[in-house]
């Protein structure tokens, strides 16, 4: 087994790690980079708990090799908040009690963020299908969908404000 040296950008920071060439990015992020917010629920791409963005695309990090991250931009749940300012999705998940055990929450947040960036005003059905790759066993998804709806509304409000400010300038 030969190891690989990987240079990557994680949540905006340059990160380097070494890993065996057959190790998943999930294992590398958890065990070598220390980002344990990325969870393993299945290791086979069926539960979404390990969701991250790879060059902006939503992927399961269990279905990516660590070596494939070389030269790529990675986003994880740890990068959602801006300093002490939580992302609207994080705020709304807490406010709407959209988590019980919380193990699926990091994956849901990352997936929902990708959804709202692509589609700022999704319908309930669009939310449900976009999040179908993220399993939650505690909530029955009800409060999760409501939290994403509320976060979308909040983000649209913030974006409007930003746009207005820009105009004024």
């Amino acid at each position: 087994m030969s190891g690989a040296h990987v240079s990557t950008t994680i949540n905006g920071d340059a990160v380097e790690f070494a890993c065996p060439q057959d190790e998943s990015l999930l294992d590398a992020l958890r065990n070598r980079v220390g980002l344990t917010g990325v969870k393993e629920g299945c290791g086979t791409g069926d539960c979404g708990a390990c969701s991250i963005t790879l060059d902006g695309r939503l992927v399961c990090s269990c279905l990516v090799l660590g070596v494939e991250a070389n030269g790529k931009q990675i986003g994880t749940v740890e990068g959602l908040a801006d300093g002490d300012q939580l992302h609207p999705l994080q705020e709304k998940f807490i406010e709407h009690a959209a988590l019980q055990c919380g193990i699926c929450t990091p994956g849901f947040l990352v997936a929902a963020k990708v959804l709202l960036e692509r589609n700022p005003d999704p319908s309930e059905t669009e939310i449900r299908y976009a999040l179908a790759g993220n399993l939650c066993r505690c909530t029955g998804y009800d409060k999760i969908v409501r939290a994403v709806q509320a976060a979308g509304k909040e983000m649209r409000k913030q974006n409007k404000k930003k746009a207005k400010k820009k105009k004024k300038k």
Binding site: G45, G48, S51, R57, C60, L63, N134
Partner: peptide, 9 residues
């Protein structure tokens, strides 16, 4: 095929 996550790959 699969989820949005799987579609990414």
């Amino acid at each position: 095929i699969g989820s949005d996550q799987v579609q990414g790959r």
